[in-house]
Each structure stands twice: as C-alpha cells, then as structure tokens.
Amino acid sequence: MNRQVDADELNLELESWLAGKEIEAGPKWQSLLAMAAEVRALPYPEFKNQLKADLLENVDTHEPGYIAFEQVTGAAAFAEVLPIFGGRDFRIFPADHRSFVVSFISHTALIVLIASGIWVGRGTVLKSTRITPELTYLPSSGGGGGSGDRSPIPATKGTPPKMNDRQLAPATIVVRRLDPMLPVQPTVVGPPDVKLPQSSQIGDLISSNVVIPSNGSGNGGGAGSGSETGLGGGTGLGYGPGSDRGTGGGVVRPGSGVSAPRTIYDPEPEYSDEARRVKHQGIVLLSIVVDQQGRARDIHVARSLGMGLDEKAIDAVRRWRFSPGMKDGIPVAVQVNVEVSFRLY
C-alpha cells in the first residue's frame, strides 16, 4: 500500500514537471526527477535500429572483398600461363605442342566460318545484344521455367522477356510463324515488378550458344532445356532452373563449400496482446532463404507457437539483416532454419 502511495506521489510530481511547470521537488523525489530528465534526452528507441538498417541498406555486399582476385604480373604471370602454350612448366597442364597446333587451327577455322555469316536462321537475324546493367537481384523465389523444341543445340544466349502474372505467348527464340494475325508479346510468368535484364535478343542468360538461333533441347513451346512454356532449364512458366513460375536460382543449404549466413542485426520480435495476456512463451521455428543481399525471403513457419506469435516472428525476421552465405567467395542464397524466442520475464 505504501508503495502505491509513493508511486502516486511521484507521478504527481512528474506530471507537473512534464507539463512544464516550475516545481520544487522535495529531497524524496529529487533524484528520481533528475533521472527522468536525463532519460528525456535519449533518442527515440526505434531511431537507433532504423538508422542501422538504413546504413546497412546502403552497403553493397558485392564489394571487392567478397571476390578475391589475385593480380599476377610480370614474370609470375608468364609462368602461370606458360603451360597453356606447351611450355616447359608442366605443373598445371601437361601440354603437348601438337595438340596446341591442332586446337589453334580448328578454332581459327571456326571463327572464320562464324564471321562469314553462313549460320543465319531463315527469317531471323541475330542482332548484337547488349545486356543492360539494370539487372537487380533475382528474388530467390524457388521458381523457374523451361522449354524448347527438342533441338540438339542449346538455346541461344540472350535475356528473358518481361515478367507478367500471366502468359499469352511463350518466349521463343526461333519464331516459326513470322506474320501472326495477332502479334502478342512473349512473357514469362512471375511478379511483374521483378526487374530482369533486358535486351533486343530473347534468350537464356547462362547459355554458351551465342551464334546459332535455337529454342533449345527442351520441350513445351518456349526456349531452353526444360519443359513447359517458360524459359530456361527448369520446369514451368517462369525463368531459370527452378520450377513453377517466377525465377529460380538454385537455393542451397550450408555445407559442401557453402557457408551459413550470419545475423548482423536481429531486433527482438514484438509480443502479441493475446499471448502477453496469458503469458504464452516458446520458440517459433522459421524456414527462410537468406538472399545474396542478406535479407530473409520465402519465410515459412516450420514450427508454430500460435496466439499471433508466428506472425510477430515473421515480421521480426523480415527486418533482420544477415551477412549472406558464401560459396567460392560469392554470396549465394541459402536456406536455413531460424528460431525466434518469445520469453516474458
């Protein structure tokens, strides 16, 4: 009871002070009022976290530090490349002079044939492509697509068409009918706001075939080595090596040369009113993909806690920032499980 009386008395003093009134606090409350005044000068609690997120947002994770190129110059460089030309140093390649000559002649012949323009598809002309630097990251949605017309030649290198949430015409590279009654722009199916690299030549970004027009070895009507009407090596209506729609990119798990992502900013989750009232506690287990920019995507609840805490856990993890997983010095999208703990003290 005395405690409540003290609490009420202090609060009256504080209310007067907060209202800007001149007060002469007795010795009993002076130190606590001074404490309140010092607290008043602190920043808003969310400011610190917001600033941190803002600072990390501006950091480019593809800085040179991630990819270590060793610059070799002078005699050291010559020694490194010497084996390729059949030099005496056989440390790396046991090169043979005759093999080199045969290889040189055959490559020269190939270049001459290409330059002569013999291989030009009927009705289609390959224009030189320039992939715009607009490529932003492809959301690791696990999606993908693929197609082709059972050609023995891989799909031609190029850029995918725009994404749309529905597909009226598949993305083909070699168009069989050149004068359609109703021309329709080819698309792949996925989030329309995803930015894919664009150029004048539709094709598969990762193909090595830069010369011969081909829809690729897959089947379905689009282009690639996959199936259905997408574009790429996957299955579906999207683009890439995954399945279904959207873009795929082979999300990996830690291990086998892939390092796990590390949290660098992990604000506590909020408690739901419902759970707080009944003092419900525990751990929500989330399955997430940490993308190359260190953000959590494709968040799924692997073990639920209920009472609104699953949603609070997801909200919190969406704000988390990670140092991304790495493979061969390059950031990769990595699937991991994350425990989000809810404790009332």
Partner: peptide, 8 residues
C-alpha cells in the same frame, strides 16, 4: 574489408 561489418 566488408562494410557490412560496420554494424558492430
């Protein structure tokens, strides 16, 4: 080395 480590 990696500016993302500025967080600490």
């Amino acid at each position: 080395g990696e500016r993302v480590n500025f967080a600490e």
